[in-house]
Design a protein around this nucleic acid. Structure first.
Lengths: 112, 112
DNA sequence: AGCATCTTCTACGCCGTGTAGAAAATTACG
DNA sequence: CGTAATTTTCTACACGGCGTAGAAGATGCT
């Protein structure tokens, strides 16, 4: 339960890229599409409900920040997918077998 | 584009577990829930459209088989998720850092 | 031809998502 | 303080995916 729609993903990307919390207006401006602020607010509220963003209600304009880094989130997704497989090791093997050489080297280093 | 609904997943699981092609009726019987055969047929048709199952139209009851093994499918999903990240290596590092010891060992063997 | 089986077509309801207006709440400024 | 500007909430609509299945059409058996 953390899959994202297109707009939701765009918003998360903004929040991830800008390390700091953003207001709905700032998000709105920085988006390529020309959307109503209410649209962005709706999306932000939904993302908050999903536990993807944290809202600072104290300051006026509320500020929104990503709960997890993009990395953390991607790793969560990976684990979620892996969780659907009964044969984890086999999947991992196949998966790792398919990564690029440089990535493989990097993994070898990590696995020590 | 290969995410599955609950029923779709159940059906795929059946097809994956039974190595051989199954008819709609067989799928229907082997499902826990007591569904109408037309329901199963609809789902199978949708899975076919998604490229998840192959239908043998030659034989009457049509027979349906999974296009990819569950492993292959899971790996596809993993790559899809990984594709959404700009920092692949960082994600991989973190991801691999979190697997169990036995899995890590298995990976070392594969990369070795 | 008649009957049983199987498939297609069509459809309904629900929920997630993109989209935003109307109205309410808060803040800013003269 | 009162009015205008900003911000947030509430409500809503449309569209597509998915679970669900009946009615009708196609195919095959006897």
């Amino acid at each position: 339960m953390a899959s994202l729609g297109d707009l939701e993903r765009s918003v998360m990307t903004l929040l991830w890229d800008s390390g700091q919390p953003l207001s709905a207006n700032e998000v709105c401006e920085q988006l390529d599409d020309d959307l109503a602020v209410t649209t962005v607010l709706t999306v932000l509220a939904r993302l908050e409900k999903k536990g993807m963003v944290q809202r600072e209600r104290s300051s006026r304009p509320h500020r929104y920040a990503a709960m997890a880094t993009r990395e953390e989130h991607t790793v969560e997704m990976l684990n979620e997918v892996l969780g659907t497989a009964p044969d984890r090791e086999a999947v991992l093997a196949r998966f790792i077998g398919g990564v690029s050489d440089s990535e493989a080297a990097s993994l070898r280093r990590i696995l020590g």
